[in-house]
Design a binder for these strands. Structure first.
Length: 158
DNA sequence: GCCAACGTTGGC
DNA sequence: GCCAACGTTGGC
């Protein structure tokens, strides 16, 4: 099983939106980056777990855990002219963009913030999320980093 | 709101 | 294939 991190802007789709879906799965649509797509296509498998990360907000950080409820399949929004994710250049016979379904597993007990992880360079120094200029919205997480985040969760913020 | 970093586009 | 211009991401 592999671990991942998936970013979303809470104003657009936050973890409380996913939580409100209860046990139902939700499509993680709108990924329009080739590297992120390739991770879904080549790496992600049903049953994997991912951190839910809130980006572009007051307190960027990891706020929950989701499970990957499907393998990658074509994202229908790329063919929907009314969608902001519409891509006129995508061929229905060879869809360019993929997505997976996700399901809420649990909220973290607290927001494990980006700032906090940055302060712990010895634990997270080589975490891809913290890499300079990192803009990937889906990325793999090593088991070591996965566990370090969960260890951090258990501590109370100073 | 600013802006650095990065990805994509398109002329040549 | 190069690279300047442009668009987007996302922390601050």
């Amino acid at each position: 099983m592999n671990y991942w991190l998936m970013k979303s802007e809470p104003e657009v789709f936050g973890i409380e939106h996913l939580k409100a879906c209860r046990e139902k799965t939700e499509p993680w649509d709108g990924i329009r980056n080739y590297q992120a797509r390739n991770f879904m296509r080549d790496g992600m498998k049903k049953g994997d777990l991912a951190f839910f990360y809130h980006s572009n907000c007051k307190q960027p950080g990891i706020v929950g855990i989701v499970d990957i409820a499907s393998n990658a399949y074509p994202d229908p929004t790329q063919f929907d002219a009314g969608s902001k994710y519409f891509d006129a250049k995508s061929d229905p016979d060879a869809p360019r963009w993929l997505m997976v379904d996700v399901r809420h597993v649990r909220d973290l007990k607290r927001n494990v913030s980006l700032a906090e992880m940055k302060q712990q360079a010895e634990r997270f120094g080589d975490f891809q999320l913290l890499a300079k200029g990192n803009r990937l919205s889906i990325m793999p997480v090593s088991e070591a980093h996965w566990n370090r985040v969960l260890e951090l969760e258990k501590r109370s913020r100073e």
